[in-house]
Simulated scan of single mutants.
Amino acid sequence: MLIGIIFVLGIANFAVHKAVIESNHPLLDTLPASFRARGGRFSLIFEFFVLLAAMLLAGSGWRAAVWGYAIYSVINGVTAWLLLNRRI
């Protein structure tokens, strides 16, 4: 159950992350070139490793990983909403 929750949040995080990368927001120009190169592939790989770590921790019975990843997802969602709606 815990891994399933993290997996669903991970799908949402990847979708939001890709939408932000494709938005070409001026704030993205402040990121290091390695995060922007090849369509943001490095940043998506980093996102994958965050998801993998959370799933492994949750699979080991560490419930705090679910809460931590949920908070991370909310922060990602709010930030993406701010960027995509040009509020920043």
Rank of each mutant, 00 (worst) to 15 (best):
L27G: 09
A54M: 01
A80C: 15
R36G: 10
M55S: 05
F46K: 08
G61W: 05
F35P: 05
P26G: 11
L56P: 01
A54Q: 02
R63C: 08
R86W: 15
A70N: 07
L51P: 02
L28P: 12
K18Q: 06
N85E: 12
H25Q: 11
T30Y: 12
G61H: 05
V74T: 10
F7H: 10
A70W: 00
W67T: 13
A15H: 08
D29P: 12
N76Y: 03
N76T: 09
S34A: 11
W81K: 01
A53M: 06
V74C: 13
Y72I: 08
N24L: 01
L2D: 15
M1H: 04
E47V: 00
F14V: 07
V8D: 10
G4N: 13
V16P: 04
W81F: 10
E47N: 11
V74S: 14
Y72V: 00
V78K: 02
G10Q: 00
I71R: 00
A80W: 02
N13T: 12
M55D: 05
A15K: 06
P32I: 11
E22D: 07
A37E: 10
L2K: 13
A65L: 00
H17D: 09
D29A: 13
K18G: 01
N24P: 05
D29G: 14
I75L: 08
A15C: 07
R86D: 05
G61K: 11
A65E: 00
F35Y: 15
W67K: 06
V16Q: 11
Y72N: 14
I71A: 13
N24W: 11
L28S: 12
I11T: 06
R87S: 14
R86Y: 03
L28T: 02
L44E: 11
F46I: 04
S73C: 06
Y72S: 07
K18C: 05
L82H: 08
A12T: 13
V20G: 05
R86A: 13
R41F: 15
I6N: 01
A15I: 09
I75G: 03
I21K: 10
S43T: 13
R87E: 05
E22P: 07
F7Q: 14
I3W: 09
V78M: 11
R41M: 14
